[in-house]
Design a protein around this nucleic acid. Structure first.
Length: 688
DNA sequence: ACGGCAGAT
């Protein structure tokens, strides 16, 4: 264990001088699970079959099969490295369980679904896409022979819209259930209902296996009618936990001090992973680390600092997997992407700030807010676990043990933190008898459900009839698109304005993060280059101009670089557009171009997005048309310096003000034409 | 005069 208390010479530590080292003395310790005699991963030279046999789970194969054969539902708890995800589907198949159908294994992430399918097809010595395959968006590598199918949870949900009883599947394995993604949470209810209905109708049974890494298994078991919980041994190594001695007022400063304390004391071959909250914070911290590292005494090893966040180009993300040059220490500054999505070998130290940036939703205002907040205990344990992948590790928590005790036990599931319009539309499309009483494992608030339904009724996707909520013909079509309801509505409106080709492009552009790249340091350049695309009609038309220019040079990456366009996202836009176009063709939606008539495009947007509009007030500010909430034009909009009388916006971003993002200039008359009843009602409400 | 974690159909 490294010595504590050794500090930089005072002259060399200007940025650290005032900081109290969080770990100077009085360390508190705790231990994570440490299975006795845990073994290292077998060397890769070992044959594939002996590798399978050397996994801890292999010892339990017979017992597991015996149990799973007789159970309708089971909850399987296994630490990482137990081999449950690759082995259980094979055991079932080899044991002749569920052979009448397909064994589905869902994953929250595309890359996981693809790499697991590849691994399992290798183990079965079959070609990928034959016995073992995968289905993710834009890619389907399955065939009539496929019996073990890995797919994203979102993909199985989409399949369920076409076949709510999931007839082709005999077993559904919901993996990584502890992550509680919005899709997994909806799937819980969908598979549970499908299982019951198949039983009631005397159809072939559906077996449900929930796989999770968490220790909090009671709610899974309870939800699935008291399903038995089976435990599997894992290969997690021991991790020592250190808590801060006293509360830290500045977690960034505390992180900095801790990084350099470890750096001075530990052998340079031991890497450090630091959990921070966002891109800007990470970039700033990386710069500070560089600056300090330059002034360290010669006795200190040199340092390579690597930022890691999702919007970082892949080439730079990949750097974190490379070993640092000999004698250098690798310090990775990461968002929660390293909590689940990216696993880095060789991490000895984890520094946990205890903070995370996460979405919150307030149904009253319909606002989603992204805020820095405390992690949950479960999340803190997940972070600590990143230090014990190959060997024992150490985790420094920049908060006290008392503070930790006050953290929430579990992270609030995503389904309780976001707008539910899409989810409710899906449930209606799944022919759920009463969406208001849908059997969620963790129920969203009644307010959130009501707000979502309100939105669907406004869009014309659903209707209230004798206390019942019914999906309209329009709603059924909307559910066919992998989009937010307001965007699918816009597409379905576009034939009326003869601009479906343009709307397809615009909707695709709006449904990715951002195709524009705005490096702070090159602001003037960005502005100069972007000038040629700017439309006085707003951001939608501007984005459309950029896409057209991109297509004219047939997706040239050099062009993207010159024009500060994110080529990764631009390619995604292109794929999404092709997919949406296919769906339009299947629904016999006429595809027309409005040519140079942008007025029609804006009319179409106004008619479908009339509830996302704002008007200029006499005092020069803006207020939303429906609730008269004060809002402002976001400075990133091309309309920032303009004062159009009436605009539609894509979303409200709540930071220090309430900003409208992605604006389009519209005519107020269009809005009243689009929804006279709606605005009459709003006007009345405003007068009272 | 602002600035956005992660993931997916």
């Amino acid at each position: 264990m490294p010595q504590r208390g050794g500090e930089l010479p005072p002259s060399k530590r200007p940025k650290l001088a005032s900081a109290a080292a969080p770990f100077s003395s009085g360390l508190r310790k705790a231990m994570l699970l440490a299975p006795p005699g845990a073994k290292r991963q077998p060397p890769p030279a070992m044959g594939i079959e002996s590798q399978r046999r050397s996994l801890p789970i292999f010892q339990a194969r017979g017992a597991l099969l015996g149990q799973l054969r007789s159970l309708d539902c089971a909850v399987l708890i296994g630490e990482t490295g137990s081999g449950k995800t690759t082995q259980i589907p094979q055991y079932l198949y080899e044991g002749g369980i569920g052979r009448q159908g397909i064994i589905a294994v869902t994953q929250p992430r595309r890359v996981a679904a693809i790499s697991l399918a590849t691994r399992v097809s290798d183990e079965k010595k079959t070609e990928l896409g034959k016995l073992v395959g995968y289905t993710v968006r834009f890619e389907d590598l399955t065939s009539d022979e496929t019996k073990i199918k890995f797919l994203t949870d979102g993909m199985l949900l989409r399949e369920a819209i076409g076949d709510p009883l999931l007839h082709k599947y005999s077993v559904v394995i919901l993996d990584e259930a502890h992550e509680r993604t919005i899709h997994t949470d909806v799937l819980f209810g969908v598979v549970k209902a499908a299982q019951k209905k198949r039983k009631d109708l005397g159809k072939s049974p559906l077996k449900i296996i929930v796989m999770s890494a968490t220790m909090d298994v009671d709610q899974f078991s309870q939800y699935f009618n008291g399903a038995p919980v089976l435990y599997l041994e894992g290969r997690q190594h021991s991790i020592q936990i250190f808590y801060a001695k006293q509360p830290q007022s500045d977690y960034l400063q505390a992180a900095l001090v801790t990084i350099f304390q470890i750096h001075q004391e530990a052998p340079s071959s031991q890497d450090i992973l630091v959990f921070l909250t966002g891109q800007e914070e990470i970039e700033a911290m990386a710069k500070t680390c560089h600056d300090i590292a330059k002034h360290l005494p010669d006795s200190c090893p040199p340092m390579v600092v690597m930022p890691l966040y999702a919007s970082l180009p892949y080439s730079q993300q990949l750097r974190v997997f490379q070993a640092a040059p000999k004698g250098y220490r690798k310090v990775i500054l990461s968002t929660n992407i390293a909590e689940t999505s990216i696993t880095i070998a060789g991490i000895k130290y984890v520094v946990d700030t205890g903070m995370v940036k996460a979405k919150k939703y307030t149904p009253e205002s319909g606002l989603e807010v992204l805020a820095v907040q405390r992690v949950s205990k479960a999340q803190a344990w997940q972070r600590a676990g990143r230090a014990g992948r190959e060997d024992s590790g150490l985790c420094y928590r920049l908060y006290t043990e008392d503070e930790f005790e006050k953290f929430d036990k579990m992270t609030v599931p995503e389904i309780q933190r976001c707008n539910l319009a899409s989810v409710m539309l899906h449930l209606l499309a799944l022919r759920i008898p009463n969406v208001l009483t849908f059997d969620f494992m963790s129920k969203p608030s009644p307010e959130a459900i009501q707000a979502a339904i309100e939105q669907l009724v406004l869009l014309g996707a659903a209707e209230r009839k004798d206390d019942q909520l019914i999906l309209t013909t329009l709603g059924r079509k909307m559910a066919a698109f992998p989009l937010e309801p307001k965007f699918s509505k816009t597409i379905l409106m576009s034939p009326r304005f003869h601009c479906s080709e343009e709307i397809l492009t615009i909707v695709s552009l709006l449904s990715v993060d951002s195709v524009l790249h705005n490096p702070l340091s090159r602001r003037d350049e960005v502005q100069a280059v972007r000038k040629k695309f700017i439309s006085s009609e707003g951001d939608h038309i501007t984005l459309f101009n950029i896409y057209r220019a991109f297509k004219n040079i047939s997706g040239n990456r050099e062009w993207c670089k010159e024009n500060f366009v994110n080529s990764r996202n631009m390619m995604l836009v292109s794929d999404i557009r092709a997919q949406l176009r296919d769906i339009c063709l299947k629904l016999s939606i006429p595809l027309e171009s409005s040519r140079s008539d942008t007025g029609n495009i804006r009319r179409c947007l106004a008619h479908s997005l009339f509830m996302y509009t704002a008007e200029l007030q006499l005092d020069g500010t803006y207020a939303t048309t429906d609730t008269h909430q004060p809002v402002a034009i976001h400075p990133s909009s091309v309309l920032f310096h303009c004062k159009p009388a009436c605009v539609t916006y894509n979303e409200l971003l709540h930071t220090n003000k309430c900003y409208m993002r992605d604006l389009c200039v519209v005519d107020a008359d269009w809005l009243y034409d689009a929804a006279p009843e709606y605005f009459r009602r709003k006007l009345k409400a405003a007068k009272n």
